[in-house]
Write a protein that binds this DNA or RNA. Structure first.
Lengths: 341, 341
DNA sequence: TTGTAGGCGTTATCAT
DNA sequence: ATGATAACGCCTACAA
């Protein structure tokens, strides 16, 4: 089953390679009759153009690469969905590589994206200092747009959300329902965490409330089991304080959703004893125990806008004087039983 | 910032292209000193081989393509993780394309995978008749392994799970805790659903219990909202039966997890009134309402084995006489409060 | 040890 | 309207 190429097609048809190529590409300089003949044969012999050769020649791959740290939560899946939808509308394909929160894996992924395998790159770095030099090198040759973790030292378009605003609204809501003592459970993702913490502080300031240092908790997410353990210990510790918190904000998707499991295990009533709200894009919020109040990120939009901005750059002939934008989309808050009983 | 190529490197170094190429590839026919000089310059000028050209020449891309219907649930993410881990151990990269449960998108994805853009393909079709002809064409030129939805008319390696066994154990467990009246909520994915239903029937037969036709429910999953609605109606209907069921088995991840939300909304006590168990690979089982008994699929293994079998085929020079295997891995059942109170 | 030349499968320019 | 030819960037016999 030798593969059909332009050459073999040309041989069978007794025509030159260039004629066949033009015919298949509907060139105006080819007669309808030959076009038809060529296309018929192409179909019959199952001709598939070799994209590698095509891209090598044209310098375009019509492919966008996506590198992101993980795709284990709905947050990432939803972003990817948004990207794919928009990309295919713009006639681009999407190829995805996960860095698995692992710097070396990320390096390999970035490497493989350079090399003109893609026309542009959508990149969510594992943290703000990972593979910066490599990213800059790539950026010299290939358009890059950073998404989600926008705290990354690369001067280009960035698409994320208003993180501080998210925690701010959560605090505001909790204050309004008379929960003034709010703990916050953070992951270690520095830039984003910092902003979400900032929103937490701002809210306290605005409502003239002191921030209790003990209420700010950091968890390293190595494994789910380990995370459960850490959170359990923190919760136990917090509840022993003279002034135990009446609410917990989860500063990341993973933390927020698993928080409920830990509280359930400790038999702590939510929201009676501890109200819970946090960043979470799961559509399982209704099935959770109890139904979970969430700060939602506009994931589809993040994906869509990231693609659009990237394609914009790809199509720009004069990349040198683009004004790089940082686009931060608003979050929304959905109240359910975990805060309002 | 003109890109460095072998040619430009050679020019700078006053050497021939082939010498530079060989030096960079550590050919034995090049002296250490020139190798060093070449590599130094390559690094200095930030030389990145053009993978397109490389692959075009060698016919190998060291890349495996993955096409799957969606990646919105942990089930898929976990499979992808398993694939990536194994692939990178075998020096392959993974590129992922989602068909989004959409036949046309799947076609495009398949098309783009043909064309020698990948050395092999891991394919989970959206259903058992989607793009079969195209898949066969591809299969003629590129190794393909089917995973998860193994009910697909392509003679090749297939990796999935023992679906019937999963529902069988679930029924058995429910029977043992004296829940003999079991409804089953199925998605529309035909092959897998059929097998899971078969397991349900087998269990009934083995325990000398009749299958009640009304207990077998099909839901089309168009959107989460719609699914909730459908399930709600079915549950209401079932509970009005003279012999209402005492348990529900969810025959797919989505159905199982969302089932809890619907039951919660209807204020039906789980497990007191209705016990729930079903296929689900979420690690949120503990945070659910109540904690969810699950039939777990060995997702990492599915991914790992699929990659291994595929690479096996890729490396086979004589593909014509491979004995195709269907590998079905056992599921495991994890009991939590949704069945045992 | 190094260089020359051909080709991978396309597309594009320029003749015919 | 069709064909010859070069080029994309790389690898690899084969020559020197």
């Amino acid at each position: 089953m030798a593969k059909t190429t332009l050459k073999s097609l040309a041989a069978v048809l007794n025509m030159s390679v260039s004629t066949v190529s033009k015919a298949l590409n509907d060139s105006y300089e080819i007669s309808e009759s030959t076009k038809q003949r060529v296309k018929d044969f192409a179909k019959k012999l199952d001709y598939q153009p070799n994209v590698l050769a095509q891209s090598l020649k044209t310098g375009k791959t019509q492919t966008i690469g996506v590198i992101l740290p993980k795709m284990t939560s709905p947050f990432e899946s939803q972003i990817l969905e948004g990207m794919q939808l928009t990309a295919s509308a713009l006639h681009y394909k999407i190829v995805i590589m996960s860095s698995m929160e692992h710097e070396e894996t990320e390096r390999i992924a970035l490497q493989s994206m350079v090399n003109k395998a893609v026309d542009g790159l959508l990149f969510c770095p594992i943290h703000e200092r990972s593979n910066v030099d490599l990213a800059k090198q790539i950026f010299n040759k290939t358009p890059v747009v950073i998404f989600d973790r926008t705290d990354y030292p690369l001067e280009t378009h960035k698409v994320g959300v208003l993180n501080a605003e998210g925690t701010f609204s959560a605090c505001k809501h909790l204050f309004e329902i008379k929960r003034k003592k709010i703990a916050i459970f953070c992951g270690t993702n520095q830039g984003i965490t910092a902003k979400r913490l900032a929103g937490y502080r701002q809210a306290h300031q605005q409502f003239n409330l002191d921030v209790v240092p003990e209420y700010i908790v950091f968890c390293a997410i190595k494994s789910i089991e380990d995370l459960h353990l850490q959170m359990e210990q923190h919760i136990v510790r917090l509840l022993k304080l003279p002034n135990p918190p009446e609410a917990i904000i989860g500063a990341s998707d993973t933390i927020t959703t698993h928080l409920l499991g830990v509280l359930a295990k400790l038999e702590i009533n939510v929201p009676e004893r501890i109200a819970v709200v946090g960043f979470a894009n799961t559509d399982l919020a209704l099935s959770l125990n109890p139904s979970l109040s969430t700060i939602r990120q506009p994931t589809k939009d993040i994906g869509a806008i990231a693609v659009r901005k990237l394609v914009e750059v790809i199509n720009k002939t004069n990349r040198s004087q683009i004004e790089w934008e940082e686009i931060n989309l608003p979050t929304s808050i959905q109240l359910r039983r975990s805060t309002i009983g």
